[in-house]
C-alpha cells in the first residue's frame, strides 16, 4: 500500500478533465501499454492564446491518474509559455507529494505536456525520437534528454532516484552504468578513469623482505619450470642490495653448465621479471 496523500486519492477517485477534445490544437502521447503506463493529453487554445480546454486519458496506476488529472487543472488558463515552464516537481507539489518510487508518474505528465506543446508548434508527434538523443533504457524507451531533464529539475544524485523519476533502469538494469555516466557528467564529476596497470615498484626500493618475496615469485614463475625439465631446482640463499645468491639443487648442482645457467637463464629471467638490469646473480655452493 502506497502512502498517497489525500489529494492524490481525491484526483484518483475523482479525476478532472477526462476525455478527448474534437480538433485539439496540441496532442501529446507518452508511455505505452507494454510499459505499464501511458498518457494522452490534448488542449485547445482560446482566442486570448490561453489554454481554454484540456483533456486527458491515462492508462496507469492511481498516482499516474492523479498526476494527469492534477496537470490538467494546473495548466487550464495558462499561456503556452507559462505551461511550458510547468515541471514534474510542480505536479508533485500540487498533489502534496508523491511516493519517491512514483515520481515517474509526475514526469510522465510533464513529458506529455511538452509533447503536446511541441505538437502544437511543429506538428510533430514523436518529439524525443526526432532529436539527436540517444536511447538509454530500451526496456522503458527512455532517452538521454529525459534523464538529464529529470536530474536537473529534481536535483537527482543517484541511479535509484533516476529510476524512480524516469523508470530508466527499472527492469533489466543493464543501462545503470550509462545512467551513472549521465549523472557524473551532470554533477560535474569526472567519470572514474579505468585504473592504469600499477607500475611495479622499483626493485631497489623494496624492503628486504619484499625483495625476497619478489625474487621467490620470479624464480617460481620464470626459472624453476625451466630447470625442472632437466630435473634441477634452485634455492634462494640471500638477497643483498641488487645481488641475489642462489644455490642449484638436483642435476643442476653438478652440471658443468651451472655457470652458464646462472648467467644465461636465472639472471636474465630475474632482470626481466623484476624490471632491473643491474640485478646480479651469485652462485653459492
Amino acid at each position: 500500500m502506497w502512502d498517497y496523500s489525500d489529494k492524490v486519492l481525491d484526483h484518483f477517485h475523482n479525476p478532472r478533465n477526462v476525455g478527448t477534445i474534437e480538433n485539439p490544437d496540441g496532442v501529446g502521447e507518452v508511455g505505452a501499454l507494454a510499459c505499464g503506463d501511458a498518457l494522452k493529453l490534448m488542449f485547445k487554445l482560446g482566442p486570448d492564446g490561453r489554454i481554454a480546454d484540456v483533456k486527458f486519458q491515462t492508462f496507469g496506476c492511481a498516482s499516474a491518474i492523479a498526476s494527469s488529472s492534477a496537470l490538467t487543472e494546473m495548466i487550464k488558463g495558462m499561456t503556452l509559455e507559462e505551461a511550458a515552464k510547468v515541471t514534474n516537481a510542480d505536479i508533485a507539489k500540487y498533489l502534496d507529494g508523491l511516493p519517491e518510487q512514483k515520481m515517474h508518474c509526475s514526469v510522465m505528465g510533464m513529458e506529455a505536456l511538452e509533447a503536446a506543446i511541441a505538437n502544437y508548434k511543429t506538428g510533430d508527434t514523436a518529439v524525443r525520437e526526432l532529436k539527436d538523443d540517444p536511447l538509454v533504457c530500451t526496456c522503458f524507451n527512455v532517452h538521454e534528454s529525459e534523464i538529464v531533464e529529470a536530474v536537473r529539475i529534481n536535483k537527482l544524485t543517484t541511479v535509484e532516484q533516476v529510476t524512480n523519476y524516469t523508470k530508466a533502469g527499472g527492469a533489466c538494469g543493464k543501462c545503470k552504468g550509462a545512467i551513472q555516466a549521465i549523472l557524473d557528467r551532470e554533477l560535474g564529476r569526472a567519470a572514474p578513469k579505468p585504473a592504469a596497470p600499477a607500475a611495479p615498484a622499483a626493485f631497489a626500493d623494496l624492503t628486504p623482505a619484499k625483495k625476497v618475496l619478489a625474487v621467490e615469485k620470479a624464480l617460481d614463475k620464470e626459472v624453476r619450470p625451466a630447470l625442472a625439465i632437466d630435473g634441477g631446482d634452485v634455492e634462494l640463499v640471500d638477497v643483498a642490495g641488487k645481488t641475489v645468491q642462489v644455490r642449484f639443487l638436483g642435476h643442476c648442482a653438478h652440471c658443468m653448465a651451472a655457470a652458464l645457467t646462472q648467467d644465461g637463464l636465472v639472471q636474465k629471467k630475474l632482470r626481466e621479471a623484476l624490471g632491473d638490469d643491474e640485478i646480479a646473480v651469485e652462485l653459492v655452493p
Binding site: L9, F12, H13, L33, G36, D37, F59, G60, C61, A62, A64, I65
Partner: peptide
C-alpha cells in the same frame, strides 16, 4: 487496457483485498 494497482485501490474502497501482477504494485 487498464492497470492493476488502480483496480486494487478501487476494490479496496469496496473492502476487497486482492493482489496484482502489475509493475506498480
Amino acid at each position: 487496457y487498464i492497470e492493476g494497482e488502480a483496480m486494487l485501490y478501487h476494490l479496496a474502497d469496496a473492502g476487497v483485498c486482492a493482489s496484482s501482477g502489475s509493475a506498480c504494485t
